[in-house]
């Protein structure tokens, strides 16, 4: 096994790990978000949680669509943040909403090549 193959193997493993992490976040969002929505609060977490769970599952399955789904969720979160903190006079509201998700988005971008490779070796529907 040469070095390039080992790297590819590591990239795949990392993408699986990342997918599991995103799915886990999705689950927490769904459970907590359902509670919050039930209490009359924001629906963001429940909806975002469903998207994250799907995204994580797709990434674990080696599908590039999972990465795109996460980036879509990130972009939607950015818009939601701008809307929800529009009355604020400072930027503190951006920290909880975007800091962690941005770190994950960067990780998603980094594993994108590995995902692409995995996606091409597995035909559609054969995951």
């Amino acid at each position: 096994m040469n070095a390039a193959v080992r790297r590819r193997g590591a990239g795949s493993a990392l993408s699986v790990l990342l997918g599991v992490l995103i799915a886990l976040f999705g689950l927490i969002f769904i459970v907590g978000g359902a509670d919050l929505a039930w209490l009359g609060g924001s629906w963001y977490y429940l909806i975002c949680g469903v998207v994250l769970l799907a995204s994580g599952a797709l990434i674990v399955a080696g599908r590039v669509a999972g990465a795109w789904l996460f980036l879509l969720a990130w972009a939607a979160t950015l818009l939601w943040t701008m809307w929800e903190t529009s009355a604020d006079t400072d930027w503190w509201g951006w920290l909880p909403r975007l800091f962690g998700p941005t770190l994950i988005a960067i990780a998603v971008l980094l594993v994108m090549p590995a995902l692409r490779r995995r996606d091409t070796v597995r035909p559609l529907g054969a995951a």
Binding site: F25, G33, R97
Partner: peptide, 11 residues
């Protein structure tokens, strides 16, 4: 620090 903390506090 994270959306999860924020979710917890919202609840």
């Amino acid at each position: 620090m994270s959306p999860i903390d924020q979710l917890f506090c919202r609840i």
